[in-house]
Design a protein around this nucleic acid. Sequence first.
RNA 1: CGGGGCGUGGCGCAGCCUGGUAGCGCACCUGAAUGGGGUUCAGGAGGCCGAGCGUUCGAAUCGCUCCGCCCCGACCA
Length: 485
Amino acid sequence: MPKEGFVTSITRQSEDFPGWYNDVVLKAELADYSPVRGCMIIRPYGYAIWESMQAELDGHIKRTGHSNVYFPLFVPKSLLEKEAAHVEGFNPQVAWVTHAGGKALDEWLAIRPTSEAIIADSVKDWIQSYRDLPLLMNIWNNVVRWELRTRLFLRTTEFLWQEAHTFHATSEEAEAEVATGLDCYDKVSEEWLAIPVIKGRKTDSEKFPGADFTWCIEAMMRDKKALQAGTSHMLGQNFARAAGIEFLDRDNVRKHPYGTSWGFSTRMVGATIMTHGDDSGLVLPPNVAPVQVVIVPIFRKDEEKAAVAEAIDRFQAVLASTPEGAKVRVKVDWRDDSPGFKYNHWELRGVPFRMEIGPRDVAAGQAMLVKRVDRSKEAVPLEQLAAELPARLRAYQAELFDRARDFRDANTHHVDTYQQLKDGLDGDGGFFLAPWCGGAKCERQVNEETGATIRCIPFDSPAEAGKCVVCGAASERRVLFARAY
RNA sequence: CGGGGCGUGGCGCAGCCUGGUAGCGCACCUGAAUGGGGUUCAGGAGGCCGAGCGUUCGAAUCGCUCCGCCCCGACCA
């Protein structure tokens, strides 16, 4: 329980969710503010979490046939401006380099807000024939978007991400690729981060500037607000046409290839925090937890310390004797602090399991095993624990996912009138599935009057005749309304 | 850009009204005891009081100007 008077005490979620989030990020030492407004410093513990999801996603990207590449940080102004909708969408957020080498530049350089423009220009010479397609690339990089309001991990001026960029001979192939990208995100979110997501399509007003359409995954945070967790865009021929990319197809006709792009960012670290965390701090899914099991030795005298150390060594040796067990990330906390201090320290950092081993446990050949998520405590024989630990971590991972999914489902409601929607948003909040006519005007009205947006048109939303909650016109299916980050 | 608030050791704050050589809690270092839910005690290190100008014998404190940050609004994925 958080106590007052300690530097590491954190705001309660129920009291002030954004305050809780900030406390956790700073006090669990995930990140820090930087001298540059809106930018963040990612500290070792936070970067380790990012690296874990990065490695997992990179595996999915490579298995689906994409190769990692690199393109420059700077985008010449003329290139960024080639695709009309793209410039219009990004211009307000672009940071420009106007001087270099002590002189004003002839042509300004944008610090990439995303790389569609420079990639489209660069690959036009690589694509001559349908045989050069598909071209499947991915970049891990940093981008800069000048934001008015920033939040650590969730929206920072500079952020780290991955952007996949692909080119295809046909529209059908490109559309299948949009699905491939979204599927990678779905898997990483649900299987690695234990964050249940809703897959769907963005409305036209929410789609990527320069895209024909955008697909996304949306997740519910513990304050019941929505967070866009990844987007996959069908770029059609827009960028290819703007950059003059052409290939000669089988039928001997010159055509523009179809493009896609999809991105997943450090925002997902924030999503992980806000999906699982509680009043004691982080609750990390074992897959991403830099430390999966922390061992807290308890002793008074030197003899006791030696006996405890020996028991820990033996436990670790047994654990390391199986391939699965050897991969478990264990940390033994020998620091000269009280056990209680260490419990709080590691709970704040979200370590899934804590093992307490003291003289009484050594005598009984056991350890006290405490689960972070519910603080349940259990005495387990050491040998048995070493054998079971990998399975227990898997079960813990599944438990977090189920818990998050149940929470989301319990806070997702069907509403049929505008009044119900407003009452719901102003009441307990959550996700609201409601009929919508498809009109941008009704969409805007809801946003202006309630602050909620259409998060997506869920793929699993069945065909259902209804009346738009705003204008009453015919609706074919329900869409997802929520207040969002 | 409009409204409100705040800048004092790493963090959180007091001191300012009523000028007089900077203090507290946490964190940090040393030592001893302690150790199963934030452990004590003792000793210690650390501050151009956001910046500049002014008033004054003397400014963290009073005045003016500037800079920065936070919250709300506006804007924005």
